Amino acid sequence: MNKYRVWLLLIVCNLFWAGNYVFGKYVIAEITPLGITFFRWAFAILLLFPIAHFLEKPEWKSVRKVWPSLVIMGILGIIAYNMLLYSALDYTSPTNAAFVSALNPGIMVVSSVLLTKEKISRLQILGIGISLLGVLVLLTQGNITQIFHTAYNRGDLLMVGAVVVWTAYSILGRRLTMIPPITATAVSALFAVIMMAPFVFAQGMDISNLSPLAITGIIYMIIFPSVGSFVFWNISVREIGPGQAGIFLNLIPVFTAVISGILGERITGAQSIGGLFVFAGVYLTTGMLEKRKA
Score class of each variant (00 low, 15 high):
R5Q: 02
R5V: 09
F16T: 11
F16K: 05
N20E: 05
E30N: 11
F39E: 06
A44R: 05
L47F: 13
L47C: 01
F49Q: 06
I51L: 15
A52C: 09
A52M: 14
W60E: 09
S62A: 07
K65C: 03
K65M: 08
L70E: 08
I72A: 09
M73V: 01
M73Y: 07
G77C: 02
I79Q: 09
I79P: 04
Y81V: 08
L85F: 11
Y86P: 02
L89C: 10
T92F: 07
S93D: 09
N96F: 11
A98H: 05
L103A: 05
I107T: 10
V109H: 02
S111Q: 03
V113A: 07
T116E: 15
R122M: 13
I130N: 01
S131W: 05
V135H: 02
L136H: 00
G142H: 11
I144P: 04
I144G: 00
M159F: 08
G161A: 05
A162I: 06
V165H: 05
I171V: 15
L172V: 00
G173H: 02
R174T: 08
I179R: 01
A184V: 08
T185R: 03
A189L: 15
A192M: 13
A197T: 15
D206A: 07
L210P: 02
S211G: 06
T216S: 13
G217T: 08
I223Y: 06
F224R: 14
I235V: 14
E239T: 03
P242K: 14
A245D: 12
A245G: 09
G246Y: 14
F248R: 07
A257I: 10
L263K: 13
T268G: 01
Q271D: 04
